[in-house]
Every structure is written in structure tokens, then in C-alpha cells.
Simulated assay, not measured.
Amino acid sequence: MIVTMCATSPSDPTTENQNAPLPPSLQVAVSDTLKRGTPGRVPFSVEFMPPRDDAAEARLWSAAEAFHDLGASFVSVTYGAGGSSRERTERVAGKLAMKPLTTLLHMTLVGHTESELRGILREFASLGMTNLLALRGDPPGDPTGEWEGIEGGLTHAVHLIELVKSMPECADFDLGIASFPEGHYRAESIEADTRYTVEKLRAGANYSITQMFFNVDHYLRLRDRLAAYDPVHGAKPVIPGLMPITSLRSVRRQVELAGCELPRDMEEKFTRIAAGDEQKNAAAIREAGIEETTKMAERLIAEGAPDLHFMTMNNVRATQEVLHNLGMAPAFGPRFGQDMVR
């Protein structure tokens, strides 16, 4: 069992044991975590970003400890455009796995030749990091810009899946992909986006994690489209990606980057609460945002979502508040007599 990996306190990421290679047999497949029972109403998982400085790293480990104690089914670690965070991603993922936490690595094609990708995959395999989210990736510098491959590189996520499947060293890999409730912004149509997603599932991906969204209907339509297109592969788990809403400015920025929509009634609600001064009314906006995210999560649970995947920005509080509202975590805040799960 994965819990036997932690011979030292999970709060100490600098011990010698933390740097030891992780045997492949001790990483639980993400797709298997979705089949296990959970003490909560539904499994939940979280996304981390590789930290850029010491302060951010300290915040990440604090968050990892908290989510470990809260019972996250798995954690994922993003991979910077063009491989810009590759070393940090690998280092952070390895330490997270030794906490122990089932750890999912994001991997993109941007800036890598096929030969380089093979080398990276072999390195992941040697470290026992066998959970992989196969992505094409965003263009460096401008996530909404034109995507261009490089000579000797691959051009689509399905090619990365095929590459993994062709390598004997990666026989134990459990693959996931991204899916897009409102369609990928580069897809010619919703129908084309559905076809591309199913192609990746047919190629060997076992589940998908969605781009963030703020309208649950879009998630449900995506799930129905995939299952209708291919009743076997299209019926594989679709994990909804949620970002707890904590400010009007941040949610507008995320909507812009993700290419998703903020429902009109939600936009009007936050604008009304802001009353022309978002800074002055920040607490009220945040409270309303957590309430809206909780409503989304409640409906997703009712509709049979296999897991709730929270995009945390390496913070705990907002996600824990949503989980508490769902009856899946202790309360968070001094007014409850505590400010952390410990």
C-alpha cells in the first residue's frame, strides 16, 4: 500500500528518504484511486504548481501536508510551457510522492523533440513516476497564441500517448488527458473537439481532467457527448476541474486564460456585490465565490462526478472551505477555533 512509503514525518521534505528513487510498484494509478472507497462523499484531488522561490515552496509543502491529512485521492503538478519548469516539476512531484501522495505529472510537447521526450519518459519511469497527464501544452509566453511545433517534435497529445504506449519502460504508466467542457479554443467545432478527445482515449488514456469551468451544464454536455460518440472509450471517467472563486479580478483573468465563460447571472452577482469597489468588498465577493463553487460541487456530486479536482494555486484555505461546506473537511478559520487541519 502507498502508506507504507512514509518512514519519516510527512512534514519534512528534506530528509534523505525524500530523495530516494520511488519504486514503480508503490505509485497507485490515478485511475485506480477513482475506483476506491472514500470517507468523503466523493474523492477529491488537487493541482499544484512548481514553486518559483523559497516562500512559495514553503507554502506548497504546507498545502501538501494539509491535503495529505484531508485525504486527497491524488495531487497533480503542472509543467511549464516549453518545459520551463521541468526540473522543478520532477523534484516537487518526487517529494510529494514520498509524503506519500499519489502524484500525477503534467507533461507537454512544447519545445521538446521526440528524442528528448523519450529521455524524459525514461527518467520518469526510473523514478517510479508512472502517473502522467499527456498534454500538447500552451505556446510559451502567450497561452492563447498560435501553437507551433519544432523540428523533430510531436504535434498533438495523442502522439505523446502513442509514444508512451510504444516504450516498454512505460508499460506501467497510467495516462490521463485534458478535456474541454466548452470545447478547445483551437477546435473547429464542438464535434471536432469531441472527436479529438475520444481519439486520445482510444489511444490509451484512461480518464480526462477538464479545463476549469463555471457552468456545470457544460461539464454534463461534455460527458454526454463523449459517451454518445464512443460508448466504451467515451465513457471513461471525466474529472471536473474546479477553481474556487476568491475574487472578481482573478476569476475574470482565469476565464480569459482558460477560454471559458462566466455565466451571466454569476457575473452580475459578483458585480453587484463589488458595488464599484472590489477591494473594499473583497471579503463579501470571496464569500459569494466560495458559495458558488460549493453549489457547483454539490451538483457535480449529485450528477455522479468521479472526483472533484481543485486548482489550488498552492493554497489550502479556499478549497478546504468548499470541502467543509460539502461535509468533507474540518472548518477553516479562527472563528471555528482552528486555522488549519492540524
Results as ranks from 00 to 15, higher is better:
residue 83 G to T: 02
residue 33 T to F: 05
residue 238 V to E: 06
residue 163 L to D: 06
residue 161 I to Q: 02
residue 199 E to C: 00
residue 8 T to E: 14
residue 200 K to V: 03
residue 40 G to N: 12
residue 210 T to C: 11
residue 290 I to G: 01
residue 242 L to G: 06
residue 308 L to C: 04
residue 278 E to G: 08
residue 266 M to G: 09
residue 190 I to M: 15
residue 225 R to Y: 14
residue 95 K to I: 13
residue 196 Y to H: 14
residue 92 V to P: 08
residue 125 A to M: 09
residue 303 E to T: 12
residue 336 F to H: 08
residue 216 V to F: 13
residue 93 A to W: 07
residue 204 G to M: 03
residue 126 S to A: 11
residue 267 E to Y: 15
residue 93 A to E: 07
residue 105 L to S: 07
residue 112 H to S: 02
residue 143 P to W: 07
residue 77 V to E: 09
residue 66 A to C: 10
residue 181 P to Q: 12
residue 290 I to S: 04
residue 149 G to P: 05
residue 2 I to K: 14
residue 281 N to W: 06
residue 141 G to I: 05
residue 131 N to L: 04
residue 34 L to F: 03
residue 9 S to V: 02
residue 327 G to F: 14
residue 44 F to H: 00
residue 46 V to E: 06
residue 319 T to M: 07
residue 24 P to T: 15
residue 336 F to G: 03
residue 295 K to E: 09
residue 181 P to D: 13
residue 255 V to T: 03
residue 59 R to V: 06
residue 270 F to T: 04
residue 205 A to L: 01
residue 280 K to G: 11
residue 110 V to E: 08
residue 83 G to Y: 08
residue 83 G to E: 06
residue 256 E to T: 08
residue 242 L to F: 07
residue 224 D to M: 02
residue 328 M to A: 01
residue 206 N to E: 02
residue 128 G to H: 05
residue 321 E to W: 04
residue 189 S to F: 02
residue 220 L to F: 15
residue 107 M to Q: 09
residue 173 F to W: 11
residue 148 E to T: 13
residue 274 A to L: 14
residue 18 Q to K: 15
residue 257 L to H: 03
residue 45 S to P: 01
residue 276 G to S: 12
residue 157 A to E: 10
residue 316 V to Y: 06
residue 184 H to S: 08
residue 43 P to M: 01
residue 316 V to E: 09
residue 21 P to C: 09
residue 59 R to L: 13
residue 283 A to E: 03
residue 153 G to N: 04
residue 36 R to E: 12
residue 56 A to M: 15
residue 66 A to W: 04
residue 87 E to P: 05
residue 110 V to N: 03
residue 46 V to G: 05
residue 103 T to H: 07
residue 123 E to P: 10
residue 173 F to P: 01
residue 274 A to K: 09
residue 299 R to N: 12
residue 291 E to R: 08
residue 296 M to N: 09
residue 210 T to W: 10
residue 315 N to Q: 13
residue 179 S to T: 15
residue 110 V to K: 11
residue 257 L to K: 02
residue 242 L to V: 10
residue 73 S to R: 01
residue 166 S to C: 11
residue 297 A to F: 09
residue 232 V to Q: 09
residue 158 V to A: 11
residue 144 T to M: 04
residue 131 N to W: 06
residue 243 M to D: 11
residue 272 R to T: 15
residue 282 A to W: 05
residue 1 M to F: 14
residue 251 V to F: 07
residue 279 Q to W: 09
residue 199 E to V: 00
residue 334 P to R: 15
residue 162 E to W: 00
residue 1 M to E: 15
residue 93 A to P: 10
residue 238 V to I: 06
residue 139 P to D: 03
residue 58 A to Q: 15
residue 315 N to P: 02
residue 229 Y to H: 14
residue 74 F to V: 00
residue 117 L to Y: 04
residue 308 L to H: 03
residue 213 F to W: 12
residue 97 A to K: 01
residue 127 L to E: 10
residue 25 S to V: 14
residue 130 T to W: 10
residue 254 Q to E: 09
residue 158 V to D: 08
residue 113 T to Y: 00
residue 242 L to R: 10
residue 220 L to A: 14
residue 173 F to C: 10
residue 191 E to L: 12
residue 42 V to Y: 01
residue 219 Y to D: 11
residue 117 L to C: 07
residue 224 D to G: 08
residue 295 K to D: 05
residue 41 R to C: 09
